[in-house]
Design a protein around this nucleic acid. Structure first.
Lengths: 235, 235
DNA sequence: AACACCAACTGGTATATACCAGATTAACTT
DNA sequence: AAGTTAATCTGGTATATACCAGTTGGTGTT
């Protein structure tokens, strides 16, 4: 009799999900029901669920229940494809929601990275993005309006890369990327409907124009189970 | 009185660590001591510590205690620097330990990726790598010995990239990379001295030669708090 | 000095229980 | 039919307790 009841429970659900007995997006029984069925306390049940959550097999919605995680989308930053396009290409439905949009004065961090004077107006854009109606990431962007006059009058729930191409004859080229597995800050968890402090993926990106000027700085927080990063490095 | 005692405790240690009152690598008081000091049960203390662990602020060693996490190293796969070099450049001391080395028959996954027949002998190499004496990653590599005759007789705790350059006049060039934040499999946690099922970073890498042949396939599992990925994309 | 052993200490797993807070649903109003 | 209210269901936080399983450090041997 190998102990570790929560491992048994974890393996049980893992196998149900792997074998598609429980489909992506479907709701698991409540913690209390599971506990009753397996003669375990809620504490133990929760430990199993949290392990499954770390594996990326299940996710939770605050006080609504536990759900089977859909497959992760593949994100290739080097492909220069917009969110809308690569999500659609993989058979899912993207959706973008604008949470906030204001002109702000560049703070020292943003100003330094953009090579602007502190206080220069930049466009701050806060968006939430969905895959198949599940919120998977929030992003905060600082856009160099100096290079993109009039951009604040456009519909900024659409793809920025398409907007750049159409209105400014520009496209994303060089970029600096940084990834870190970390816990999600409160602003991210509340916007994504996640329990505070759950782990996620933090991406920082600086996009440059063809002539090496900083077009935009992007801070993204993803649900960790929603994305796999894939990059082809070709020198 | 805002509830959530564990958040208070989390913030308490977060601030101690941020202000260097607790230095990197130093040991925290035991869970029981902390509980006594703050009049909290061990369950609550553990919840706070687990949150700090997800933040990357602390880590644990099985039944030895909790420790303050050192800063993460920056890993730039596109820079083609060996582990030894980029760790040293950032002021830390790298160390590599060979856990296993055998010739194995390529299974279908490896054979397909290497464009070899199933069953072709490939060199399997299992290593554990340390930063400042802390084990931070394990890697399992499958090396295309067809391209590198005699490599199994070399010292494979050293840098492979240096070995390639010296003995075979080869260097890493193109590569396919995949990153995923996930939980560490049992083989990784036990080798790293981590509690089973903790979250980590999974990296898969395929290295190609100058003429597009697969040199090596690499599966890495990192402690999530030990590394930040940074890539400069230049088209 | 080297070894074997044991007590003490650490985190790991688990039970039993309670109350809180947000989400959902059913019942009741208007 | 639409809106309000209350009961119920969900996960979130917390106490108190117990025993298990590696690690550590000291004790006593050799």
């Amino acid at each position: 009799m190998s102990l570790k009841h929560y491992r048994h429970l974890q393996e049980h659900f893992h196998s149900l999900i792997r074998n598609k007995v429980l489909e992506a997006g479907s709701k698991l029984p409540s913690e209390r029901e599971i506990g009753e069925q397996f003669k375990l306390t809620r504490v133990t049940v929760r430990q199993a669920l949290q392990s499954l959550e770390m594996e990326g097999m299940v996710y939770r919605q605050n006080r609504r229940g536990w759900f089977v995680s859909p497959p992760a989308v593949v994100y290739d930053p080097a492909a220069h494809l917009s969110f809308n396009i690569f999500v659609t290409e993989q058979g899912y439905t993207p959706h973008t929601e604008k949470l906030q949009q204001t002109l702000v004065a560049a703070d020292s961090e943003v100003a330094t990275k953009m090579n602007l004077a502190v206080g220069t107006p930049v466009l701050f854009l806060h968006r939430r993005r969905y895959i198949d109606n599940r919120p998977v990431l929030i992003e905060k962007m600082y856009i160099n309006t100096t290079l993109l006059p009039g951009i604040e009058e456009e519909d900024l729930t659409q793809s920025l890369s398409q907007l750049l191409a159409r209105k400014y004859q520009m496209s994303y080229r060089d970029m600096d990327l940084s990834f870190k597995a970390t816990s999600l800050p409160e602003e991210a968890t509340s916007a994504l409907g996640i329990t505070a402090g759950q782990s996620g993926l933090n991406i920082e990106r600086i996009n440059y124009t063809q002539d090496k000027q900083v077009l935009e700085i992007d801070y993204e927080y993803w649900r960790h189970d929603a994305v796999t990063i894939q990059i082809a490095i070709r020198d």
